[in-house]
Amino acid sequence: MSQSPLLKSGLKLDNYVRDLPQRFNKDKLGGTNATLKETFVDPHVQRRGDSTRYPLSTVLAEWLVDSSRRQLAITAEYGRGKSTAMLKFCTDWAMRYVKTGGSEERIPLLIELRGQNPAESDPLTFLSAWAARYALNPKQILNLIEGTPSCGACIWPT
């Protein structure tokens, strides 16, 4: 067994994989009976200087299999759907995780920086508050990031 399955098997992701679909598929949008799932359309993105609109799902799919060290930053004014797009991306993973029991996929960690304390000065402390929300061991999460292909969706403060 390689390092990757060992690290993944030690993680108790139950709360995390339950929370994501709950937020996207079941939680009602304020004051309405609709959910994000019922009102979601695949967002489009573009590069500066290029008016072509690309489906975000296509950009993400290509990026996931890109072996380079290219990371992504997606900007938009408030309310345009950045957070929802990342929640959808992670929910899709969670649904597959529940169905297949994990497999070899990267584990996306949806971290909202707006809830992070600026005084946090090292990666372990940085991950602790987020991990506590899902009863995860932050050291295990850090090991996962260090030792296996993983991906994170970080939403910076507004």
């Binding site: 930053a73 938009a76 970080c154």
Partner: peptide, 18 residues
Amino acid sequence: LCGELLYPGTKVIYTGRP
């Protein structure tokens, strides 16, 4: 700090206001 988690093999998406 989030950028410090960019170990080889790690992928990160940042989202936020411009």
